[in-house]
């Protein structure tokens, strides 16, 4: 695997292989010495053209545990903010010796443009691009869900028949898009829930069900997992919804709604959370919340992504 750009183009076997590799990585993290020599001598650049401390430090930890040298390059205060093109930035980083570029880009398709440009020979890992995809987030979500469902017996398994609700601002969410493709490829039944203004126009052909009533969706789909998306409060100023309170009442995982969930349903959130808005603390802090597991698993999944793209990976 030369690049990891989207989950849209992952087939089931490749997706399971990435998750299984992440299981191997997670196993090494139980040892006293967590560091592996796998990427010794390789240089990974975290090129973050949009702020995201959480994703950046997760990739940084992953690369370091594989013994790669890590260079962090953020947009602010750099020549990028002065209008340098992606081509010039990437070629500069490669001239410095980058073997892999982990790219967070504010523009949808930025990593795809870089990967097929011919400007560089480096591998490209998409760390989130605009409102397009965030493939490592979806992979860590699938990894977390698979572990919750199958525990130690997770290897080789997919998510066949698992019911997942994804709730909130689907329109602007790269996490939602990556999860739609990955979870359905793995056999899950995915239901998107949000106000009509925050569901994209043109998703009739997506392999999902789209609903507007969260309570009805919970009742009808008997979800194994409810994934709450981060919603920017400022969206109400663009008339996507009338007020934070109305959003919360309709699509937030409130205390009452959390209490109404089936016992086995896990609660997921990619973070950072808006407590009291899209998710109540009762839900976020409950034993059924996977929020911190998702963060921990993120390192294992990103180790797998870097290993498979940079070390060539075992076929």
């Amino acid at each position: 695997m030369k690049h990891l750009l989207s989950t849209r183009d992952l087939d089931r076997d490749t997706a399971v292989r990435i998750l299984d590799t992440a299981e191997d990585m997670a196993a090494t993290q139980q040892r006293e010495v967590k560091k592996l020599p796998t990427l010794r001598g390789k240089t990974v650049v975290n090129l973050f053209l949009e702020d995201s401390t959480r994703t950046r430090i997760s990739f940084e930890a992953a690369a370091k545990r594989l013994s790669a040298d890590v260079i962090n390059f953020a947009a602010k205060g750099s020549s990028v903010s002065k209008g340098e093109s992606l081509q010039d930035t990437a070629q500069t980083l490669e001239a410095i010796g980058a073997d892999g570029i982990v790219l967070r880009h504010w523009a949808s398709g930025g990593p795809a443009v870089l990967a097929r440009s011919g400007w560089i020979a480096s591998s490209v890992v998409n760390a989130g691009d605009g409102t397009h995809e965030h493939p490592t987030q979806a992979l860590l979500d699938a990894f977390t869900l698979r572990r919750r469902l199958h525990g130690e017996a997770s290897r080789g398994r997919d998510l066949d028949g698992v019911s997942v609700l994804i709730v909130g601002d689907i329109l602007h969410s790269r996490v939602a898009r990556s999860n739609v493709w990955l979870l359905t490829t793995l056999g899950a039944r995915v239901t998107l829930v949000g106000p009509p203004t925050l569901l994209p126009h043109g998703i009739a052909d997506w392999p999902v069900t789209a609903l507007h009533d969260l309570d009805a969706a919970i009742a009808d789909t008997d979800p194994d997992a409810v994934m709450m998306l981060r919603v920017q409060r400022e969206r109400m100023n663009e008339a996507f919804f009338p007020s934070a309170r109305e959003y919360s009442a309709g699509w937030g995982l409130t205390v009452a709604r959390f209490a109404a969930l089936p016992e086995r349903t896990v609660v997921m959130h990619p973070g950072p959370m808006n407590r009291g808005f899209e998710i109540s603390s009762a839900a976020a802090d409950s034993p059924r919340s996977t929020v911190l597991e998702q963060v921990a698993n993120g390192v294992s999944v990103r180790m797998a992504a870097l290993y498979l793209t940079l070390a060539g990976g075992a076929e």
Binding site: S108, T131, H132, R177, P200, H201
Partner: peptide
């Protein structure tokens, strides 16, 4: 459909 998928 294309804009929805590409996030444009």
């Amino acid at each position: 459909p294309t804009s929805a998928e590409l996030g444009l």
